[in-house]
Design a protein around this nucleic acid. Sequence first.
DNA 1: GCTTACCGTAAGCTATGACTTACCAAGATG
DNA 2: CATCTTGGTAAGTCATAGCTTACGGTAAGC
Lengths: 102, 102
Amino acid sequence: MTYQDVLSALANPTRRLLLESLRNQPQTVGELSSDQAVSRPAVSQHLKVLKQAGLVTNESKGTRRIYSTSAEGLIALRRYLDDYWSDALEAYGTEINRRQTK
Amino acid sequence: MTYQDVLSALANPTRRLLLESLRNQPQTVGELSSDQAVSRPAVSQHLKVLKQAGLVTNESKGTRRIYSTSAEGLIALRRYLDDYWSDALEAYGTEINRRQTK
DNA sequence: GCTTACCGTAAGCTATGACTTACCAAGATG
DNA sequence: CATCTTGGTAAGTCATAGCTTACGGTAAGC
């Protein structure tokens, strides 16, 4: 689970859609693929990548796998951005600060 | 210049190396490719992608093209992360806050 | 128990990303 | 000017990401 994994995971639009759908509520693979353009196996494969990147977790409930978002991957990404690019982002960091404090 | 562009640009290790090298100081294409594993045309192609993503800019000086980093792309990325994932990142956001205020 | 629902994995196809060499245009240099 | 330097682009190759269909294994439901 490196920021490399996170970046390539997030670079794919279908995976972002899956993630953004999971943001609303945890879902099974079937539910996720029902409102997705691609097939269920494709969704399974994407979820594998997302899991490897620390962006989702899952638990088993019978034969169902319930997937939820996980913050770990995002934290790793943000850490990379901060470590390497905080200077460049300082101006915008102030903006973050403003939002956080309100 | 969308966060999609930024994510796929950053997903490539060679492009990150180029960016991180430019972080130290602006450089020409020749300088950049001299300490890079890949050929000069490859560097040119990567720079094109980075520019499209708003991560670098360049100016011409004779036949030389001097590339520098640009914050625009990073800002777009951070905006995406904040808009979609601020909840997930709230805990870490506090950490950002702490750093910013010191 | 037999059948059905759920989902991961294997195998194969296709498109594309990352690289190379070859080429060309434009400015520097003698 | 003639030549060299710089770097963008074209064309072609190779690996792989993303998809599909087919299959198999495990739990649920009757």
